[in-house]
Design a protein around this nucleic acid. Structure first.
Length: 737
DNA sequence: TCAATCCGTATC
DNA sequence: ATACGGATTGAC
């Protein structure tokens, strides 16, 4: 794809230097043989150094090294993250490595005097490099782990997120495991026809429930580049739906890539795939497989043995052959955001991939993200949602009960801080022989500020960033632009009082146990997560994302402490809350079979309204409209520069931004959590040494490429200089403080 | 006049 | 990051 931009002055400098050094003209291969061999290079001054006595090491006899007859040049991507070195370098392929050094192979090369790893990107007949070429040092493995498609994809992702190709390739290619390499059969079974595959003419009932479902399934069968945003109906067996699409691709002899947030969802999907496809047709891929198994499966995919791949976020780069479909479920899950540089989001990777190769794309979930909504509104993707009638027939009865619990009445309920409605719904379900799901929020949210009157997150009046109070400040301050707020007025209700949000609300399983004596109590949270619960009366306490599946659906779900979720300062708090509620409510039986959901917040809140009406599209449209108005992603493009003050301010000075870029900050941010670096500075005299700051750059979405390009030039420029650190650059970061 | 050192720059 | 080249400085 597009090569990284390089400053003109650097290019001319390189050419001038090269010409001065080069004796032989850059030219056809035949002349390359005349290039001076390493062994004949004039001796350096090393032998005269007093500390190192004359030690003339006879180097490898040069005569044996000759370039390969055909395509003697290898373009190599070296494993170096520095952005000014983020381009291919040419090496000579020694004749004896000719067979092995094929495109996609891992190699080792001498680069700036050091041996570094790299990948052969392509073989060429000639070079454009004016200087002297070195030879490939060795081929680590002839296994072509990279395909042209993945190389292009990785380059595009690196450009999009202002990262280096090396960084993206580290995400895309699992570490090599030699034993695994030997154990995977070699025969590329490209010829094998679809094994069983469902008959494409017989439409599965599942997709037929969606007006556009048939058309989408047919498009996948046909290999057409259809793009859809899917809102799963309540109670939907989404793994089965994804498996059906994969089956359609398989029946057509094509590949499919299905992504889910975590290993637990992957297990469910694998179970569904097993019911649709024979075992040798698909492979699952996740980080928790361990290095050997992970690499083994990667090779299985690369060698074309399995063309249906299901996995977690890193599988977005899996080298699946002949893709007809890329799909993901629950795209709002934060696990789809890669935490390592350059922080690509799997949704974006799949979008880029489908656009590049012209395959179908499906982004789905029970809820809808602002990002998906933008895809629909911009016309890039079509809507794939069930009719209102079908939704109504499948959804449970949902009511909101405010967050004023237990007005005197039932002492058992009040002990568990359950509202009477919640208590009644739970009791009815248990009496009907069904399990009850109780969703409680995870602990440990950051303290933030909310309007005391309406409890919405308090926003900065200048840039609409979240207000917070840190330990050092007394005055509420914007976490984005740093503006202090002394006279808060709530933009939503006009309230002027602030309260802290996100404190307190913790409910334990024991409390609930006391409220329902004699009922089986199950918890699913943190490390001990339950996958399923039997169809028997039980109280199932789970944190969001850890809800077990109930075979016949839950009789009721109590969604507690939504207020805590809603008042989180994150940009997507409302959206995220609805996503979690819907994921839980989707596990409950339809109202016609007695299914009930009780929501522990004020029913007038937009997120509550969206749940009660099961209308995630309405919510997403409103959310996106709001973000347009306030200038939030994904309506705009944002870049975050963070690091120590010197690097951030320096980067800001060096940056030549395109027009219409707004700079927010810099503001101090709490130093990143995680393993701290000991021994950074010796004299701990001034506490300001590790101060981290951040600036946000905001511009129109249509300006994103230009902003990314300008950031890349800045980063390359600073990396090339000594003594100038580059801050961490994140484009459209998905986590907001 | 030579060598040790400092900068700046490229890294195939 | 290093490693190299060219310029600069310092001592004979």
């Amino acid at each position: 794809m597009t090569p990284p931009p390089i400053r003109a002055d650097r290019i001319s400098g390189a050419i001038a230097g090269g010409q001065a050094a080069a004796q032989s003209q850059p030219g056809p291969v035949g002349q390359l043989g005349t290039v001076e061999q390493p062994g004949q290079a004039e001796p350096t001054a090393q032998g005269k150094h007093p500390a190192a006595p004359a030690e003339r090491r006879p180097r490898q006899p040069a005569a044996t090294k000759r370039p390969a007859q055909r395509l003697p040049i290898a373009k190599v991507a070296v494993d170096i993250s520095l952005s000014h070195l983020d381009r291919p370098f040419d090496y000579l392929v020694p004749a004896d490595l000719d067979d092995q050094a094929q495109p996609g192979a891992r190699v080792r090369v001498r680069f700036a005097g050091r041996l570094v790893d790299g990948f052969v990107l392509e073989r060429r007949e000639s070079t454009e490099h004016a200087g002297r070429l070195g030879y490939l040092e060795r081929v680590i493995s002839p296994e072509p782990v990279l395909t042209d498609e993945i190389i292009d994809l990785a380059r595009a992702v690196a450009d999009r997120y202002v990262g280096s190709l090396a960084d993206v390739l580290r995400l895309a290619v699992p570490p090599r495991h030699a034993r695994a390499e030997a154990s995977v059969a070699d025969a590329a079974g490209s010829g094998c026809a679809a094994s069983q595959g469902s008959d494409p003419l017989e439409l599965p009932a599942g997709w037929a429930a969606y007006p556009a479902g048939k058309a989408f399934l047919a498009a996948v069968t046909r290999g057409a580049p259809a793009r859809a945003v899917w809102q799963a109906a309540p109670g939907e067996d989404w793994p089965a739906r994804l498996a059906e699409l994969a089956g359609a691709a398989d029946a057509a002899g094509r590949g499919a890539l299905l992504l889910v947030p975590d290993a637990r969802d992957l297990m469910r999907l694998e179970t569904a795939l097993a019911q649709t496809l024979s075992r040798d047709r698909y492979v699952t891929l996740s980080a928790d497989l361990g290095p050997s198994e992970r690499y083994k499966r990667f090779l299985t995919i690369r060698r074309g043995h399995a063309k249906i791949v299901a996995g977690t976020r890193a599988a977005a780069f899996a080298p699946v052959a002949d893709l007809a479909l890329v799909a993901m479920f629950d795209d709002g899950d934060e696990l789809f955001a890669e935490p390592r540089a350059p922080y690509p989001h799997a949704r974006e990777v799949l979008m880029m991939r489908s656009a590049a190769i012209g395959c179908a794309l499906l982004v789905g979930g029970f809820a809808r993200t602002s990002e998906s909504q933008l895809l629909v509104e911009s016309g890039w993707a079509k809507e794939l949602a069930a009719t209102r009638e079908l939704v109504r027939s499948r959804m449970p009865r949902i009511q909101a009960q405010g967050d004023s619990y237990a007005i005197g009445a039932d002492s058992a309920a009040s002990a568990a801080r359950l509202s009477p409605a919640a208590f009644a719904a739970a009791r009815a379900a248990l009496q009907g022989g069904a399990p009850v799901l109780v969703q409680v929020p995870r602990r440990g949210y950051l303290p933030a500020l909310a309007c005391a009157q309406c409890r919405r997150p308090a926003r900065c009046r200048r840039c609409h960033g979240p207000l917070g109070v840190s330990a050092s400040q007394r005055i509420p301050t914007c976490r984005w632009c740093g503006a202090p707020e002394t006279h808060f007025i709530c933009g939503a209700c006009g309230g002027t009082e602030l309260r802290s949000a996100g404190q307190g609300a913790e409910r334990t399983a024991e409390e609930l146990g006391r409220a329902f004596p004699g009922v089986t109590l199950v918890t699913s949270a943190g490390q001990k997560i339950r996958d399923t619960v039997p169809n028997r009366p039980a109280i199932v306490v789970a944190t969001p994302g850890a809800e077990p599946i109930a075979g016949d659906g839950y009789g009721a779900a109590l969604l507690l402490d939504g207020g805590v979720l809603l008042s989180r300062p994150e940009l997507a708090a409302g959206e995220e809350t609805l996503r979690r509620w819907m994921a839980a409510a989707a596990l409950v039986r339809p109202a016609s079979r007695g299914g009930r959901v009780v929501l522990g917040v004020d029913g007038l809140l937009p997120s509550a309204q969206a749940l009660i009406r099961w209308d995630p599209v309405w919510h997403a449209a409103a959310e996106l409209a709001g973000r347009r108005e306030l200038g939030f992603p994904p309506a705009v493009a944002m870049a975050s520069l963070s690091g120590d003050e010197r690097s951030v301010l320096g980067a800001l000075t060096d940056l030549e931004p395109p027009d219409q870029v707004e700079v927010l900050g810099p503001v101090p941010v709490d130093s990143a959590p995680g393993p701290g670096r000991p021994g950074e500075s010796g004299g701990g005299e001034s506490g300001g040494a590790d101060d981290k700051v951040r600036v946000l750059l905001r511009t129109a979405a249509s300006n994103r490429r230009q902003l990314a390009a300008a950031l890349r030039v800045m980063a390359a420029d600073r990396a090339a200089r000594r003594d100038t650190a580059t801050p961490r650059i994140q484009l459209d970061p998905s986590a907001w403080l």
